[in-house]
Design a protein around this nucleic acid. Sequence first.
DNA 1: TTGTATGCGTTATCAC
DNA 2: GTGATAACGCATACAA
Lengths: 344, 344
Amino acid sequence: MGSTRRPTLADVAARVGVTPKTVSRVLNEDGPVSEATRAKVLAVVEELGFRPNLMARNMRVGARDSTVGLVVPDMGNPFFGTVAGGVEDAVRDRGLTLLMGSSGEREPLEHALITTFLARRISGLLVVPAAGSDHRFLRRERESGLPVVFVDRPGAGLAADAVVSANEEGARVGVAHLIAHGHRRIAFVGDRPATLYTRKTRQRGYRSALEAAGIGHDPALVVTAHDPYAAGVAVRRLLALADPPTAVFAANNFASLGVVPALAEAGRRDVALVGFDDLPLAAVLEPGLTVVAQDPAAIGRAAAELVLARLGGDRSRAVTRTVPVTLVRRGSGELPPPPPSASC
Amino acid sequence: MGSTRRPTLADVAARVGVTPKTVSRVLNEDGPVSEATRAKVLAVVEELGFRPNLMARNMRVGARDSTVGLVVPDMGNPFFGTVAGGVEDAVRDRGLTLLMGSSGEREPLEHALITTFLARRISGLLVVPAAGSDHRFLRRERESGLPVVFVDRPGAGLAADAVVSANEEGARVGVAHLIAHGHRRIAFVGDRPATLYTRKTRQRGYRSALEAAGIGHDPALVVTAHDPYAAGVAVRRLLALADPPTAVFAANNFASLGVVPALAEAGRRDVALVGFDDLPLAAVLEPGLTVVAQDPAAIGRAAAELVLARLGGDRSRAVTRTVPVTLVRRGSGELPPPPPSASC
DNA sequence: TTGTATGCGTTATCAC
DNA sequence: GTGATAACGCATACAA
């Protein structure tokens, strides 16, 4: 039980009465082979259920493994899952397989995962860098030709390709949308840590929209929350301000997930809301949630294509691709501010 | 450029002035090594940035690759993403890496993916079988000792371990919950194809709850929908029946995603609803969506543990593990039926 | 404590 | 057309 060794090239060869190399030739359509032996080989391959061992094949002189490694913070997050799907789609046709792991947004785990991938001699590396992680240790690899692409956020300490969403522009568009509907007191609920790339760029978009409209920046309206609960708390606090916001920009979907119920529970259907990143039930809410939607599948595909291009010999300098976002109007972002009333 | 060959065991050995085997001993803490050479080896390993080649290591006599393969229908689905996360967590500590791919619920793709995984000589295989796929082709592998675990749905044509949710019981509990709140006309919105395992088992639970309550089964209340849109259409049709349902059981989250907006648009806040599988915004809806929540991370972990146990030598017969589900009350499932009125 | 011989399954090279 | 030989990077078994 559990011990029937898989057939090898040599087994097939022996059974046919040729050398392994001939079998190899048939399978890889390499050198010339007589039609007779060719047929015989294929027959025996079928009979024995022979499958070439990719480990052995990839171990040829200097060859890399036919895999690409992908590190994400969390596979359960549909954003990263969809990114991964995009990567896999783009990579599969080239005979590459996806090696995947999650870092839990923790630098040590990310590092360990990447190290394992490198030990496997992956053909390309795609990383959604954890906050604060440093990729200097990848320099040697990059120099020796390993394609590295940072996804969703740029990496640090390494000149490598990157694919990101149009974060700043998306936030600007989202906030400008609220301004266009008459709002001037607009809160920003962003991720923690505040140094996170997506947080910073989106906040920059927020500020630039305000500036473009000649609206002064009020630091009291900018809050940080790392989960829905914290976002809910933050919103309640905002609404309790002496001069509260009439609109909220939720800079990611954890923020949206907190802001939406907080507004609902407070019975504040008059507060406008635009979220960054789409949610499955966004259209079902009342009002529907207006969002700046990202395109995670496109991000994954773009990242994979960069890896493939590098693998194909593209030695040009590192680029950053920006994937467009889309404003999806569903109601919450089109609410007008309350009519100006006599201040108490 | 791009051609500095990675250092090998031999390179390190040469630089230290010992044989490769000695270096190997140091790295694997195998045989005895003098403290002097040990230190020297480690120094050179560091200096050269040497990383053992896992491909080569795994190619030892009869050894399998230190990976497990996971095939899911769709990585963008947070359910499967979370399953994958559970698998990875459980597997990582044992030094195994996750090889992942999505089948798009299509049998040929699933087959191709598995074949590739086999060619890589994975140590274990986890599959969420696509509807209608047959796994007879895996018999040889199973017999030669490859651990195979079906996830979320049992496989066909192969005696292998499986991990599934408590589908039947969950549906029974969900429907019984509606019955307990006074409903007797309860619709069932299930997946397509109706032969899908999860569809069948959940429908069985639905029927058994009805039977237990002495409620006759009305085929007109059972509908099939494969996406939110179809589910919405189906619900509208149900509500237009002469004797419409007062409650709906949505047997998966695509169904919920269609039923919720359909009820909202129809202004039917009086229709009770219980969904199978949780949704991120479920608590935010009005009323909150009552669901039978699955535990995808636990499913992934359980599946991985089965693989590990088999890898550890467990040769007992194939088992099916059932992961419990939980009824989460949020409002929609606790709505009473409308008071009986004179029929028109 | 360290070295030698050998093998894993495949492909490259060069010969016949 | 086909074969013999070496090599990829590491580990196992046995010697020294």
